[in-house]
Write a protein that binds this DNA or RNA. Structure first.
Length: 591
RNA sequence: GGGGGUGUAGCUCAGUUGGUUAGAGCGCUAGCCUGUCACGCUAGAGGCCGAGGGUUCAAGUCCCUUCACCCUCGCCA
């Protein structure tokens, strides 16, 4: 139907007879001549109808409107002098058609894909096919394609085998809430959509497929965020006979390749690494944004000997007094602004309050609470924080956990508010040596930080018995710009260690059999040492594309309430469908 | 489930202390215009002010309830 696309014609095509197809991006009717920008996903080309084309064609051209689909056959011509448009790739030429075909009309669109104003996101989602015609969306999906292809190529070159795993599996107790699929054949039983292909890829290792890769769709029925969708895509990898080092350097290589090909950035390898403990100490989070400084400073020792009751009591009770020096931030935050920061950490992280000082010109620490401190203590605080005039010092006195959360939240805000980094820059790093277990707030028992098959570091195996909280895992997270872009572990292949892990997690032998029986069986038939990683493809695309939410890099994303505004999924189903499944809805929601 | 933000014309938004007939730009419709490319000019149509209730002589504006979308805590790797 077409000989060329709307993005490829240039001076070298002048004089050629071509046929283009596309959408009417805009039309400019000058009475005599009519100009049309014809758009497809490759670009835009100007079509010029002048009276020579004949009355009939001119009339048809005059009737064209936004988003009509047309085909034009004609000659590529150089634009007259002075009318070249340097802003578009095809701006040196135009097509002078001899023939115009109207392939399809369009209703007046609710918004113009070629327009400059971005409509509200709910409208974009409802008319996603119009939104996807926009250049930005097309560029993003193309970026996603290039990243996916780059990943597949890299792993193919490294001898990996792409193996597909089932979507209909069984529900597992750990981790996120499952999306369930009722079985018609087995009334009352349910499949679960995979949260990740975790167990299957381990089985593949046991089966001898020592290098596995898959671009895998995953499902988690949890609340959404700007960087979280209920269905998302992982680049899933697993290898046998490897150490954590092998996995990390493999992914280092992938990131270096992608950064070079996609962003034109040279990454120096190996990528920097930081332990989990260090990340929590210095940044209060296991996925810190390392594009800027503003590290957390511990003041607990000074607090213990000061007269300010809040500080001393916290220190005496085993809590922590830690702070951040928001460099040059004194002017950026008024009393009201600081009240907002306080409200933010109290509301969102359960902090009790925010102590703060502004550093005045002479170096004096000014604050409503300053009178509670002796000059010597104030000096010590100032020294410890490396305070300089114009700085804003903020402190949180609380448990280690709360101070981490609150200071992490504050640090992120300072980073944005004080413009401490170039938003286009990228910082890659690894966080390693995660704890094996974290205290479960509800049950008071231990919960797996990753999943129950994560292997402890060899030197920490004894700690499983003596001090599980100190036990560190062979786990590693890839962090880019403060986002967890991926994470993985070396798995347990020793049945004895696996039993200890299950016991600590309070998973009874019965439950083990019921949920993981097949994996435990498989592990008993010659399981090789193995481990792997999964990268969040959507997040990688989001970060590489400099986007601020994950929906913009997914063709058909869901809203925060996990609905699809275009298809209106999820929807009610027929009574007959429910009967077949043996399902009865107890309290049907209205509508 | 908690906190916050937004919702006014098809779209993006303005709308003062509650005040009489709710505006702009874009888009749309019609007409004019051969070199525009955010074309220009003229005229016109277009409003359940998210929905429901209340206060008031009077509500886009104040109060209550509710819905949708977004950010966030919890939740989730």
């Amino acid at each position: 139907m077409r000989t060329h696309t709307c993005g490829e014609l240039g001076s070298q095509h002048i004089g050629q007879q071509v046929t283009l197809c596309g959408w009417v991006d805009s039309y400019r009717d000058h009475g005599g001549g009519i100009f049309i920008d014809l758009r497809d996903r490759y670009g835009k080309t100007q079509i010029v109808f002048d009276p020579d084309v004949g009355r009939e064609t001119l009339e048809l051209a005059r009737s064209l409107r936004s988003e009509f689909v047309i085909s034009v056959r004609g000659k590529v011509a150089a634009r007259p002098e002075g009318t070249v448009n340097a802003k578009i790739a095809t701006g040196a030429i135009e097509v002078r058609p001899s023939e115009l075909l109207l392939l399809n009309k369009s209703q007046t669109p609710p918004f113009q894909p070629g327009g400059m104003e971005l409509p509200n996101e709910d409208l974009r989602l409802k008319y996603r096919y119009l939104d996807l015609r926009r250049g930005e969306m097309q560029a993003t999906l193309q970026l996603r394609h290039r990243i996916t292809i780059g990943m597949r190529k890299y792993f193919d070159e490294h001898g990996f085998l792409d193996v597909e795993t089932p979507m209909l599996g069984r529900s597992t107790p750990e981790g996120a809430r499952d999306y369930l699929v009722p079985s018609r054949v087995h009334n009352g039983s349910f499949y679960a959509l995979p949260q990740s292909p975790q167990l299957y890829k381990q089985i593949l290792m046991i089966a001898g497929y020592d290098r596995y890769v898959q671009v895998a769709r995953c499902f988690r029925d949890e609340d959404l965020r700007a960087d979280r969708q209920p269905e998302f895509t992982q680049l899933d990898v697993e290898m046998s006979f490897v150490t954590a080092e092998d996995i990390i350097s493999l992914i280092d290589g992938l990131m270096a390749r992608l950064a070079k090909e996609i962003l034109g950035i040279d990454l120096s390898l190996p990528l920097p690494r930081m332990t989990y403990d260090e990340a929590m100490e210095r940044y209060g989070h296991d996925a810190p944004d390392l594009r800027f400084g503003l590290e957390i400073v511990d003041l607990t020792d000074i607090a213990a000997k000061c007269d300010f009751r809040v500080f001393r009591a916290t220190a005496d009770e085993g809590g922590q007094v830690r702070g951040i020096n928001a460099k040059g931030g004194a002017a950026a935050y008024s009393r009201k602004g600081i009240d907002e920061l306080t409200n933010f950490i109290v509301q969102d992280f359960g902090a009790k309050g925010l102590a703060w000082f502004k550093v005045e010109d002479g170096g004096t620490l000014a604050s409503p609470i300053a009178k509670n401190f002796s000059p010597e203590i104030l000096q010590q605080i100032s020294d410890r924080m490396q305070a300089e005039p114009g700085d804003l010092l903020v402190f949180v006195a609380d448990t280690f956990e709360v101070s981490c959360k609150a200071l992490y939240g504050l640090r992120k805000r300072f980073g944005v508010d004080l413009k401490l980094y170039d938003p286009k820059s990228k910082h890659f790093s690894w966080i390693v040596e995660f704890p094996m277990f974290a205290k479960d707030e509800e049950t008071g028992g231990w919960a797996a930080m990753h999943h129950p098959f994560t292997s402890p570091r060899p030197q920490d195996i004894e700690l499983l018995k003596t001090d599980p909280g100190k036990c560190r895992a062979q786990a590693y997270d890839l962090v880019i710009n403060g986002f967890e872009a991926g994470g993985g572990t070396i798995r347990i292949h020793d049945p004895g260690v696996q039993q200890q892990a299950f016991e600590l997690l309070g998973i009874s032998p019965e439950l083990q059999r019921e949920r993981f029986g097949f994996l435990l069986d498989a592990l008993a038939f010659g399981a090789p040492p193995h481990g792997g990683i999964a990268l969040g493809l959507d997040r990688v695309v989001m970060i590489f594309g400099g986007l601020d939410n994950i929906r913009d890099c997914i063709a058909f994303p869901k809203t925060q309430k996990a609905t699809d505004l275009m298809t209106e999924a999820p929807g009610r189903v027929d009574a007959r469908q429910l009967r077949e499944l043996g399902i009865q809805i107890r309290d049907p929601a209205p509508r």
